[in-house]
Every structure is written in C-alpha cells, then in structure tokens.
C-alpha cells in the first residue's frame, strides 16, 4: 500500500535528474536577478528624472507590473522572433524574468533614493560636486543599505517564479518533474520533492534576509 503512494526506489532514481534541474533553476534565478538589479536602478533614475521620459518609464513599469509574468514570457518567446530576434527558451525566460523583476526593483530603488534627505543633495551642490559624483558617492551609498532586505525578498520571489519557465519548456525543476511524471505515470514523488526543495530554499533565504536586515539595522544605528 505504501509503495503505491510513495516509492523510495523511484525517488532515488529521479533525485540526480532533479538535482541537475535544480542547477538550471538556480542559474536562471541568479542571472535574472543580477540583470534585474541593474535594470531596476536605471528605471528608477529615469523615472525620477521627470519629464516625458520619466512618464514613459513609469508607464512601462506599471504595464509590466500589471500583467502576468507568464504572458510576458510568451510574448518574448513568440513575438520577438517576428521581428527577427530568435531566442532559445532559456534566454527568453531570463529576459522576461529580468524585465519583470527589474520593474519591481525600480520601485524599491525609488523608495530608497527618495528616503535620502534633500539636504544631502544640497550639501553636495554647496561643495560643488558634479551630479554624477553626488549620485554615485553620496546618495547611492546611503540609499542602498536600507533597501537590501526588500531587494532580497524579490530575489526569493523571483526564485519562486522560475517554474513559469516550464511553460516554454525550459528544463528547470518543475518542467523536469512534470516530464518525469508523465514518462513514469508517477507525479507524486517528483512534485513533492520539488515542492519541498522550494520550501526549504525559500525558508533558508528568508532567514538569511532577516539576518542581513538585523546586521544592517545595527550598522545604521551606530
């Protein structure tokens, strides 16, 4: 009876395959997040620069945040080839994830940048810094530490969204689990293992973010 519901030999058989898939998931997560971090900052600066370009950046962020990641993935995977840009599934997935989370990160950056007191800009003007130097050396170093936990939360969220890449057949964890399930007519083991993997990794990273938050708080108090 118990073998009906859970087979350990099957579990052992599929574990290495799932481990390989986990590497794809982690790769996709990290690459996308790095791009999202850069893109988010660029978008945030554009939005704060005001004028027409700022409005367009805001509208773009609103558009991306208002529509499902899945349909964005389809859009990039199916529509871009029509303009002669053919991408493999993994690359298309990375682009969609980075765009999507870049827009979320831009909101976080904006909050961080706006939290730096105006007096800091004024002091730099009084010291005759160039705007670029002011931004890079004075404003950013103050804006970033408080928002590290919020950015970290988006890292975890991005990680949990990587299963969507299965919709365009990227062989990450969920896609692999689904394939294993349909090949062997046993979904129970692969799906449960994948679920647990996500749970453990998410809880560990959430704890890591909390730890980081406390450390940063301690530093800013001093």
């Amino acid at each position: 009876m118990s073998a009906d519901i859970w087979s350990w030999s099957y579990t052992l058989e599929i574990l290495p395959i799932l481990a390989n898939a986990a590497i794809v998931t982690i790769e996709a997560t990290l690459i996308s997040f790095v791009i999202a971090l850069v893109l988010g900052l660029v978008l945030a600066v554009l939005r704060m620069s005001g004028a027409v370009i700022g409005w367009f950046a805001s509208a773009f962020v609103e558009l991306v945040r208002s529509t499902p990641l899945l349909i964005q993935i389809f859009f990039i995977f199916f529509v871009l080839p029509r303009f002669g840009i053919t991408l493999d599934a993994f690359t298309a997935g990375i682009i969609a994830l980075s765009l999507h989370y870049g827009c979320y990160c831009s909101e976080v950056y904006r909050a961080g940048l706006e939290a730096v007191p105006r007096g800091q800009w004024e002091a730099c003007t009084a010291l005759n810094f160039s705007s670029w130097n002011t931004f890079k050396n004075i404003i950013l170093p103050q804006a970033i530490p408080p928002i590290v936990p919020a950015l970290g939360n988006y890292l975890v969220a991005l990680f949990k969204d990587t299963p969507l890449l299965s919709a365009i057949a990227v062989a990450e964890l969920v896609q692999t689990a689904k394939n294993l399930g349909s090949e062997n007519f046993r979904y129970n083991e692969p799906m449960t293992i994948v679920g647990l993997t996500f749970l453990v990794l998410s809880l560990v990273s959430a704890a890591g973010i909390r730890w980081l938050e406390q450390r940063l708080n301690r530093r800013s108090v001093r």
């Binding site: 969507l164 299965s166 969920v174 399930g181 129970n188 449960t192 679920g195």
Partner: peptide
C-alpha cells in the same frame, strides 16, 4: 509563502488525486 504558486497548483492537481 515558501513554495511557488505553480508548484502548489500542480501539487493540488496531480498529487491530491492520488
């Protein structure tokens, strides 16, 4: 909050019937 929405859906869809 710890697991993916998609994983949860798949689990409800594929595993619960078992």
């Amino acid at each position: 909050r710890g697991t993916s929405a998609l994983v949860q859906l798949f689990w409800l869809f594929f595993v619960l019937p078992l």
